[in-house]
């Protein structure tokens, strides 16, 4: 048995699935993050709030900056379909994608747990998905 096979022969299927999904989403996330930032700072697309205005007010509290500049927060970045063609919105979306990555992994894990009839962990994984989705919905803030 090779070292690689030895490393994985005791591992639950759900772990291997989680790892495969995590690898895929995190690679895409890092590429998205880099590409989004380049589009943003090089201003390859128009921006909703000028970079100089952000830089001139980044000493303020987040709430004060938001009040002053109307910077996007949460899903308000998608106020209209046209917003998707703004550099800062693309960069925001790359960050949101990263914050959602674990939800995708946990959703896959809960399906595997369910197929394995491990109802305890199906419940725990689904509860975790619910907690993250509630946080991502902006209901609590």
């Amino acid at each position: 048995m090779s070292d690689k096979e030895r490393n994985t022969h005791n591992i639950d299927k759900v772990q291997l699935v989680y790892a495969r999904v995590l690898e895929m989403v995190s690679h895409v996330g890092i590429a998205f993050l880099a590409a989004g930032y380049i589009v943003y700072v090089l201003q390859l697309l128009p921006v909703s709030v000028p970079i100089d205005a952000i830089a001139g007010n980044w000493h303020l509290k987040a709430s004060e900056m938001q009040q002053k500049l109307h910077t996007p927060a949460g899903w308000s970045i998608l106020s209209s379909p046209a917003a998707l063609l703004q550099g800062d919105v693309v960069s925001y979306l790359s960050i949101y994608y990263l914050a959602m990555a674990t939800v995708v992994c946990l959703a896959f894990a809960s399906v595997i747990f369910y197929r394995e009839k491990n109802y305890l962990y199906t419940t725990i994984a689904l509860l975790q998905v619910v907690v993250l989705l509630v946080a991502a919905s902006g209901l609590i803030h």
């Binding site: 700072v41 970079i51 980044w58 910077t71 927060a73 800062d88 960050i95 914050a99 959602m100």
Partner: peptide, 24 residues
């Protein structure tokens, strides 16, 4: 990775995540 994601959304909705600072 799970706890960070949960708390990050609160910061995102409060306008405390700015790509200009976070990405570098």
């Amino acid at each position: 990775s799970i706890n960070g994601a949960a708390a990050a959304w609160v910061y995102i909705f409060k306008g405390a995540v700015v790509p200009l600072i976070a990405v570098p």
